[in-house]
Simulated scan of single mutants.
Amino acid sequence: MKISFQKTGDPTDQLITSLNKWENDPKLIPLIHPCRNKEDVESYVRITKEEINKRLTTYHMYEIYLDNILVGEMNYTVDPVHLYKKERGTAWIAITIGEEIARGRGIGSTSLRYLEEQIKKQGLKRIELGVFEFNKSAQKLYSKLGYQEIGKNKQFTYYQDRMWDDIRMEKYV
């Protein structure tokens, strides 16, 4: 099993197709997007090359490969307005392991360590993330890698007929 990463430059057709697949997968939508209601969970998102290029003006994106197959994407942005703890020089991170064959194989932890190294190279000292309360496996991963809970946004997202909190976590690197 070979895991590799590539910084996203000019978005390829493969990346666009994969992002559209993952961001519209009913199993993944509740894990990667806050939803207000059942209709949000069932809504379709269309990702275009222009949308990715727009993201790249503020986000550092990396593609995750398993044996040369695109299986996920991770990114960070610096000092976004939605930080729970407004500390300058903070990277907000997000990761999606989109392909089911890549889940539960240590790819998430390997990817996060790589992303942390990229953030350190930029001279940033703090990382913050949000994880939905029902996503116990992600919480366990983040805790294992040294992230600590700093607060909650109550009743933040809809999933399985109820509202759930968004747990905010941080790590100093």
Rank of each mutant, 00 (worst) to 15 (best):
M1H: 12
K2C: 01
K2M: 11
D10H: 09
D10E: 13
P11H: 10
L15F: 03
I16K: 07
T17R: 13
S18E: 05
S18H: 08
S18I: 01
W22K: 06
W22H: 07
E23G: 00
E23M: 12
N24E: 08
D25N: 15
P26E: 02
P26A: 02
L28H: 05
L28Y: 04
P30N: 07
L31I: 04
I32E: 07
P34W: 09
P34L: 06
C35T: 03
D40R: 03
V41N: 01
V41H: 03
E42S: 15
Y44N: 08
K49H: 09
K49Q: 14
I52K: 02
R55W: 15
H60P: 00
M61V: 03
I64A: 08
Y65W: 13
L66N: 04
I69H: 10
I69P: 01
I69K: 15
V71R: 11
Y76E: 02
Y76H: 02
D79Y: 08
P80G: 11
E87Y: 09
R88F: 15
R88M: 14
G89D: 09
W92F: 15
I93S: 03
I93W: 04
A94I: 00
A94S: 14
A94T: 03
I95S: 05
I95V: 15
T96C: 13
T96K: 10
T96L: 15
I101L: 09
R103N: 02
R105I: 00
G106A: 04
T110E: 11
R113D: 05
E116R: 05
Q118M: 08
Q122W: 00
G123C: 07
G123Y: 04
L129K: 12
V131A: 10
N135K: 12
L141E: 03
Y142N: 05
S143M: 07
K144N: 09
L145N: 02
L145W: 05
G146E: 02
Y147W: 13
Y147R: 11
E149Q: 15
Q155M: 06
F156A: 14
F156S: 07
Y158K: 02
Q160N: 14
Q160E: 13
D166H: 10
D166V: 03
M169H: 13
